[in-house]
């Protein structure tokens, strides 16, 4: 964070007493909306991956994003988390933070967590180290070089280990975990960072039914505390859904509760019609 940015933050009225506030709370959600995505366009070699996409996500909401392959779900997440640059449009986090001019690391530090389709944990590190790395802390070079885990952070790690049920595997190498365990470890890593917005990409892919159920429980329990966006197949969505957004050919086709969606004529045509 540059000096200019921090002074700018310091001058904002709601930030005057910044030492009283948690680091993450500078996201301005005075209108209850956490994420604004407006007029997003992106094309790869003529193929329109995103087409004038608009999406608003409220604070504390559990939102499910569904859509057929190529509907733009993953691409949307890529744009929000800074992995891909969009051609035009705007993405705002809260009222004031423009996500488009930030890179992945800055966006992550703002409190947007991302879980990929394939579990990606650091296989050469222990479960413990994986969680330590994900701790919400100052992540610039020098502080990291001098960082030592304090008691509070140990407790936090223990707490998360409890939540994801990997307490016994604390000292195991992440590479030797089972597929489902890796998925949970990854979710655990996101929890460590205490994000405001959690983007989860196909969390139950490759899981057994039991594991999938546990994951659904985990995700539902997170909602309310923090916003979660999930995208996956209908079966899973039905079990956790509150509000569902259907994407089709890079733009929003329909939005509403699960029941509304299931009765929406357009959706039936393009999406449910194909579903088993």
């Amino acid at each position: 964070m540059s000096i200019l940015d921090s002074t700018r933050d310091a001058m904002r009225r709601d930030q005057v007493w910044s030492f009283l506030q948690e680091h993450e709370q500078k996201v301005d959600i005075s209108h209850q909306v956490l994420l604004y995505v407006e007029g997003l366009n992106l094309s790869f070699d003529g193929f329109k991956a995103l087409n004038d996409l608009n999406l608003y996500i409220n604070d504390g909401e559990l939102r499910c994003l569904i859509g057929a392959n190529g509907a733009g779900k993953t691409t949307l997440m890529d744009v929000i988390t800074g992995k891909t640059q969009c051609d035009s449009g705007s993405v705002y986090f809260g009222q004031s933070i423009n996500l488009l001019d930030k890179d992945e690391a800055e966006i992550a530090q703002l409190g947007i967590g991302r879980k990929f389709q394939k579990p990606t944990v650091f296989e050469a590190h222990t479960v413990m180290d994986n969680l330590e790395l994900s701790l919400k802390s100052n992540k610039s070079v020098l502080p990291t070089l001098l960082a030592v885990l304090n008691g509070e952070e140990y407790d936090r790690i223990d707490e998360v280990l409890e939540t994801i049920g990997l307490k016994g595997e604390r000292m195991m190498l992440a590479g030797s975990l089972s597929h489902g365990q890796k998925q949970w470890l990854e979710i655990g890593m996101l929890l460590m960072a205490n994000p405001r917005l959690l983007l989860v990409d196909e969390p139950v892919a490759g899981m057994t039914v039991q594991e999938g159920e546990r994951t659904a429980e985990l995700l539902t329990s997170l909602a309310g505390e923090r916003t979660v966006v999930v995208e996956h197949d209908m079966e899973f969505v039905r079990s956790i859904a509150q509000t569902v957004t259907v994407l089709h050919q890079g733009s929003v086709l329909a939005e509403g509760s699960m029941d509304e969606i299931q009765n929406n004529q357009d959706v039936i045509e393009v999406y449910l019609g194909e579903a088993p």
């Binding site: 690391a105 967590g113 050469a124 790395l133 992540k139 990291t144 070089l145 960082a147 960072a193």
Partner: peptide
């Protein structure tokens, strides 16, 4: 150095750079 958290980030960069970025490390600086 490799035993500090800095070192752990370095190994994390080796094994999954984009993941390290997505948990908030500016890997290029490291």
């Amino acid at each position: 150095i490799m035993q500090t958290r800095f070192g752990k980030v370095i190994i994390a960069v080796r094994d999954g750079e984009s993941r390290a970025r997505f948990i908030g490390y500016k890997t290029e600086n490291y």
